[in-house]
Amino acid sequence: MKKSLLLLAATAFAFYSCSEDEATPAKKNDVEVLTTLKAVFTELGTTKSDTFTFRSTDGAVFGRTTKFDTIRLAPLKAYSLSLLVLDESKQVVEDKTPEIVREGKEHQFFFNSNPLDLLLTNYATANKDSLNLPIGNLVGSITTKPTAGSGTFTIELVHEPVKTNSGVANNNRANAGGETDISVAFPVIVK
């Protein structure tokens, strides 16, 4: 009987103690989050520029949209476009654009205007990667329609597109495959 109790007690041992503490979670999400897309339109031949922003920062991963601008441009004007991709979820805002350009072969921006002639993108003027295929965070020329109008302008960033597929180097998103990192359909008013 004594022996039994001893053996019973022998099994009541503690195995292991956990060294990490679940009560102190990592303060900041240490995985990159793309929160913000800024589209900077500069009228060609001038230094006059306007910035339009989409931002969603509030939630855990993809949050609530906190800023969603309408692109307002004048008719029959040519603009250059410069895109900025930011991670504003961190204490110090991180500009992700240089990284996208550095890994340019794996990234491509696509543009889609609805109606088609609302904002006419000259895709040939997009910046290129080391294989001379478009990246598209910089576009040399986008022309607005001659008369007033409204619609949407969708900007997409695709990760690992197949740039050599038919039409992809010429703004054909459908053939590009890949995974969509950004897809923002800005409302547009040309007036």
């Binding site: 956990c18 990490e20 679940e22 009560a23 979670p25 990592a26 999400n29 240490d30 995985v31 855990a60 991963v61």
Partner: peptide, 14 residues
């Protein structure tokens, strides 16, 4: 005890 790291999906818990 659960510890979640990386992409946030569920919180830590006890």
């Amino acid at each position: 005890s659960n510890i979640a790291l990386g992409r946030i999906l569920i919180p830590n818990f006890r």
